[in-house]
Design a binder for these strands. Sequence first.
DNA 1: GAAAGTAACTTGACCGGTTACTATTGAAAA
DNA 2: TTTTCAATAGTAACCGGTCAAGTTACTTTC
Lengths: 349, 349
Amino acid sequence: MNRKPHVTLSDIAKQLNVSKVTVSKALRGHPDISRETTKLVKKVAEELGYTPNFAARNLSSRKSNTIGVVVPKIAHFFFSSLIESIYDQAFYNNFDIALTVSQENVERERKHIETLMAMRVDGLIISITQQTKDKTIFEKVVSRDVPLVFMDRVMPVDGTSQVTVDDKGGAIKAIELAIDNGYTKIAHIGGFTEINIGKRRYEGYVEAMKRRGLEIDPDWVIHGGFGEDDGYQGFMKLYRSGRMPEFIFAVTYPVALGVYAAAAEVGVRIPDDLDIICFGSASINKFLKPALSYVDQPTATLGKVAVDLIIEHIGESDEYLPKHIEVPTELVIRDTCLPKKNPVVSSVK
Amino acid sequence: MNRKPHVTLSDIAKQLNVSKVTVSKALRGHPDISRETTKLVKKVAEELGYTPNFAARNLSSRKSNTIGVVVPKIAHFFFSSLIESIYDQAFYNNFDIALTVSQENVERERKHIETLMAMRVDGLIISITQQTKDKTIFEKVVSRDVPLVFMDRVMPVDGTSQVTVDDKGGAIKAIELAIDNGYTKIAHIGGFTEINIGKRRYEGYVEAMKRRGLEIDPDWVIHGGFGEDDGYQGFMKLYRSGRMPEFIFAVTYPVALGVYAAAAEVGVRIPDDLDIICFGSASINKFLKPALSYVDQPTATLGKVAVDLIIEHIGESDEYLPKHIEVPTELVIRDTCLPKKNPVVSSVK
DNA sequence: GAAAGTAACTTGACCGGTTACTATTGAAAA
DNA sequence: TTTTCAATAGTAACCGGTCAAGTTACTTTC
């Protein structure tokens, strides 16, 4: 196979009898070079099939024009749409994205961050794993003067910005609606409180109950994970206790699905016997019966804001003041969390 | 802010009074360097907080150790799990991934491929957009001697490998099961036949009907897109025609969901009045009522094979013989496509 | 004891760009 | 006419690694 070595600036320069700097400048539209020359250079570059070498460019310019991203998962609607919006916004701003996936593994997360640093990304957007506790790697990033933005799953580290969903506010809205709809026996199947989303949503639950003057029954607050199984187990725990609440606030969409599965198994009807609302959703929610009402997480906004923040930070690298932005949520009402029916004999069909 | 310039090989070398080549070799575990020196170098590197510069490494070694990936979408279960398995397999093989998203846009796809070439990726894995017709960009990649693997959505280009799902075989299995379960009036709501998956699934449908000696009613074959709306429209077209089939083979999961929505709207009960099976699934299928039976697409295998192929190709770059691998599918039976009930009066509850 | 081999480094060139300076030229300003 | 300046292009150094080809001091080998 006739492997042709890649065409370089010098190749173009030689052909035109100019210096490679002229070619470099021309290709970048530098005003040093005349219109004609620029045109000529571009033409020859095209003819020769020139493709710039980013490694060389990055090396000499000390920039990569790339934003590094670390997320715990991809194959989840929340993250995949988040990532898509990040790509969109980066593309719009002419930045490249270097995406890595930690698979909820702390060690892998650290490794990826090292790799991205080695790539000399201009900035880093990170959503930490559920296990991440240690700050040192992040402090290392900051000490290297690499702008860092935490997204959704955050960690308090000096010199870093944060974009989060207004988890607490969203939870408050949800619970208040449930209460206003006539529910008082409200349980919360929550996640780990060490993770900010688990913590903030729980706080919202507590706050709303307090605002409406309702007591919280400790047995009705269950902390576990964020997955289907956790929802399933959570429900079962409530069910087996013999003292069922009439309403559940699920910390995530999968947790709510877990509740659905468990409820179906033991014959508890949603929303008649037990009503529910949750945080987050998935594209197919509308096909679920009953379709879940939920606190919508503005993934598109979240991704966009994260990219905007990091670019802003990259722009004014010196003495940048970190920001913390909370993106507001919206309540989406479907078939659950509707006004409570009067306790008539449950209708058939 | 005291921005510390990154530590380089020379910094380490200076500190130890050796040459930077010694440091470079030591860090890579080259046998030229003695055990002691190697140990020393690594220690100092650690102390100084050395982070290699990939741009420099790539430039001088003429390799990026990176596989470029272009997909049309991320926020879809099929692609997001595919991507996840690609990341996994690449990580396992110590390769980095440069992921780009074309958003089903041909121009963007082309641009991304250019970018990846500029990054000098060692190989390229591509799933083309629904609109891609023009081969030239791919031929350019091949002429540059960059290994190229098409994944799932393929295009016949000389010198490239392909990994696809055995779409035809999967479709055949599905239709044969439906027929064996007693159905004869079988419709197909399919995608574009210009896209290989649309074409092959359709061919499978035709083949299975032929094998079982059933005629195909042209009115019962509807070609459109791959989304929910296409399923919705497809169903409506059948419904309005007044001649309803008793079974639908949907080209994708979203199309099937569209059928669900439309059927619910007009009061057609699934699976009693109309049974259905489709290609592909989503994680929440089990919460759908009735849960769809489907031809499972082995996304994990698909991603793994794609990465394996590209690495193999990168390994023996000269005169590599392109391969075409078809990954087999599996039928997953849930609540649809069960043996047809005798046409008794439909039972209540 | 001279030739050959080997372990452990070092030298210098190079990868393909960018950047800070310097040089040339012709025209406008003094 | 001389000075000044803008427009245009060129020089050389450098970015931080890797690689091929030395070099040096010891051991072996016969």
